[in-house]
Design a binder for these strands. Structure first.
Length: 676
RNA sequence: GGCGGGGUAGCUCAGAUGGUUAGAGCGUUGGAUUCAUAACCCAAAGGUCGGCAGUUCGAUUCUGCUCCCCGCUACCA
């Protein structure tokens, strides 16, 4: 990596339909920020760009729901997201947005170049069009009856009832989910990037990077193995970057086409010198992303760049896994998250505490779990007890005994040489960890400086030495001050706010990464300004408030789940009379092989024994249902599941938690009794 | 059932192309100390590295089988 003259760092463009939570931070923004700060401290040429992705169907849906225009929705979230990042100290050089005219122009130019050079394949297909909403419908916005099981509620891409994979044209009675109207088929032209043609080049490219993380390579290789297929780079939609070709009204660039181009268009807004960051061979390009973005950054975007021809490909794509919260997956829709803007309100001035916790729990190799208890422990046992305490000891001792001025250093003893020996390896370890994107490990190494400081003070005991040898005690404190200064530098990427406070207190104006391990940073005689306590203890009640908040969310969600569903549309008696519900006895039951949910039941219906397959295996063992009298739908059309025919359906009542109960007669009754 | 990821100290996690006493932080226990936010420092306890079998002079590390957890997915008419 030392051969690169400059580095271009990007962090994933976040979708502008919701606020930022800790999962986003841990996934890519925090690691990216740490990496960038590390490079800047080394005085490297580096730029850091990111922004919001503001196009695509979900934003139009959200706007429609809220009665706003898409632009209003993205304006709101762009502002909120940008300011949260700023408050949190994510040090973007430029934070842009894909609805910016500059971006539109740039991605249109990109598209046109590919178009003019014949890099796309044009294809006209018949797509469903909603005339009242005046737009083409994405597969999952069409619903209808399944051609295979004849049931309603199937989606354009799949019937969830019987599992058949569908294309929208196969649906019977298709309905638009936007307006409920029946859509009509209309021909539409789209442009595809033939990824299959780039498969060889892409494979070569990936083979050049055996050093990429296993999770990244694993996913990329499995896609290559299955064989890449052409992918549409345009969509029929009104919200997005318009296709820069005649007669293409109502068509826009696919979000995953224009979004990564955003990295470049944003760079053009940062510096007129932008080209070298994307075109020069000696530029290192690093994309920080979450694991859900791997395919786009490692295959599709590189293929686009290859087709374009002028841009360099990514050198590193350090993708993180996901961060969970208190054991559960973070979910925006379930409001199961710690929102950054709320954290900043609840914990003012404590950005570094969250930065520290998230970094030390970072999901670098596997999904991780954030708990408030961990947050409290990290703060109290590490930030307060190790770092804050060491800094405070050094300042208090100097304030009390040396009138806040850095004392002079004198002869070193073996304790000092031990200290310097212990510190010697730290810069190299830090460098290796940071350059290898092992931020967890790097943080531990940076904190080691403060640990060594506490140890040094305990061993030298300047508060005792001062009584007999003032010069010697002063010398010890000089060493301690140099350690504080080194910690301020080494921790800057992780704890920028704390580092800033320390640098002010120590009067450091000129500093760089190479000063770690240097014991001449702060000259003797300089007046220090005690910064006070760097970190406060976080008490149980503060943590409890946060946990209560989450539990409340959980309860609300459970309550929402328990809400009694609306009564369905009124039916006539004749409709009801069609159903033949009867009582029968389960005489045999066994688990279906190869199925998690299905139980194979033999039911005595008074006439014969019929086979009914029922999806209750998760709640009932075969032996506990034998002998039960249950109600079942007797005239349901037989249906094959897992290769066996089911003759009827057992009626089950579903409890609020999803568990099931049989609908049974309240006394023993004859098998075959009808239910009316 | 299929695909992917994982099972290493009380907790959160490192690690090993197979080789002498398997690591870190937090937590626990004991000691020391008082400059410091009951903080710091020292020490100890604590692991048959999910289970079984195989390959090997030797496996926690390789192979096979198996159990458990997480995600996606199929099956709940």
């Amino acid at each position: 990596m030392s051969t690169f003259s400059r580095t271009t760092v990007t962090a994933a463009l976040i979708y502008a339909n919701g606020p930022i939570h800790i999962g986003h931070l841990a996934g890519c923004y925090l690691p990216a920020d740490i990496y960038v700060r590390f490079l800047r401290l080394q005085k490297k040429d580096v730029i850091f760009v990111s922004g919001t992705d503001e196009h695509g169907v979900p934003i139009t849906i959200k706007a429609q729901k809220e009665g706003k225009t898409p632009q209003e929705v993205v304006d709101y979230y762009y502002k909120e997201i940008k300011s949260s990042f700023e408050d949190f100290g994510i040090s973007f050089d430029f934070y842009g947005r894909t609805s910016d005219p500059v971006h539109h122009q740039f991605s249109q130019d990109f598209f046109l170049k590919l178009y003019n050079e014949g890099k796309f394949v044009e294809e006209t297909t018949m797509q469903y069009f909603d005339e009242s909403a005046n737009q083409f419908l994405a597969d999952r916005y069409i619903t209808g009856d399944c051609p295979s099981c004849k049931q309603s509620g199937a989606y354009g891409d799949q019937c969830e009832k019987c599992g058949t994979t569908l294309s929208p044209n196969e649906l019977l009675n298709p309905k638009s989910m936007l307006s409920g109207a029946s859509p009509v088929l209309k021909p539409t032209k789209n442009w595809f990037l033939p990824l299959d043609k780039w498969q060889g080049e892409l494979t070569k490219y990936i083979d050049l990077h055996p050093e990429w993380k296993p999770n990244v390579l694993g996913q990329v290789k499995s896609w290559l193995q299955e064989g890449l297929k052409p992918r549409a780079m345009t969509r029929d939609l009104n919200w997005g970057v318009p296709i820069p070709l005649p007669d293409t009204e109502g068509k826009v660039l696919y979000v995953w086409f224009d979004a990564p181009i955003g990295y470049m268009s944003m760079t053009t807004q940062l510096t007129p010198d932008w080209e070298k960051y994307w075109k020069a061979k000696d530029s290192q390009i690093v994309h920080f992303i979450g694991k859900d973005n791997i395919v786009f950054h490692c295959l599709i975007f590189p293929a686009m760049c290859m087709a374009h021809g002028e841009f360099q490909l990514a050198d590193q794509v350090p993708a993180n896994e996901f961060m969970n919260l208190e054991g559960d997956k973070i979910s925006t829709s379930r409001n199961w998250a710690v929102w950054l803007h709320e954290y900043l309100q609840d914990f003012p001035g404590k950005q570094d505490v969250l930065r520290y916790t998230l970094t030390s729990l970072s999901p670098e190799t596997k999904d991780a779990d954030f708990t408030w208890a961990d947050f409290q422990t990290k703060n109290n046992s590490e930030l307060v007890a190790i770092l804050g305490n060491f800094v405070n000891r050094a300042f208090v001792l100097i304030d009390k005994n040396f009138d806040s001025q850095v004392p002079v250093k004198c002869i070193e003893s073996s304790l000092e040489s031990d200290l310097m020996l212990a510190l010697k390896d730290i810069p190299a370890k830090l460098d290796a960890a940071l350059a290898g994107f092992k931020f967890r490990d790097a943080l531990v190494n940076a904190m080691e400086i403060a640990r060594l400081g506490n140890k040094y003070l305990a061993e030298t005991e300047p508060w005792k030495v001062i009584k007999e040898d003032r010069a010697q005690a002063g010398s010890i404190l000089n060493f301690a001050v140099q350690l504080v200064a080194q910690a301020a530098i080494a921790l800057e990427p992780f704890l920028p706010f704390t580092s800033h406070t320390l640098r002010e207190a120590l009067g450091m104006s000129d500093y760089s990464w190479t000063h770690i391990g240097d014991f001449e940073i702060i000259p003797a005689g300089r007046s220090l300004k005690n910064p006070g306590l760097l970190f406060d203890k976080i008490e149980d009640d503060v943590i409890q408030v946060q946990i209560d908040k989450l539990n409340q969310t959980k309860n609300l969600m459970e309550l929402a789940l328990k809400t009694v569903p609306m009564v369905k549309d009124t039916i006539e008696f004749d409709d009801f009379a069609k159903m033949d519900i009867r009582i029968g006895e389960i005489v045999a039951a066994e688990k279906m092989e190869k199925s998690k949910k299905l139980l194979k039941l033999k039911v005595n219906d008074g006439i014969k024994t019929r086979t009914i397959l029922s999806g209750i295996a998760e709640y009932f063992k075969p032996e506990e249902v034998i002998g039960k009298q249950v109600s079942f739908l007797a005239n349901l059309a037989p249906r094959k599941m897992m290769g066996l025919e089911s003759e009827g359906m057992i009626l089950m009542a579903e409890d609020a938690d999803g568990s099931l109960a049989f609908v049974q007669p309240d006394k023993k009754i004859w098998n075959g009794a009808t239910v009316n």
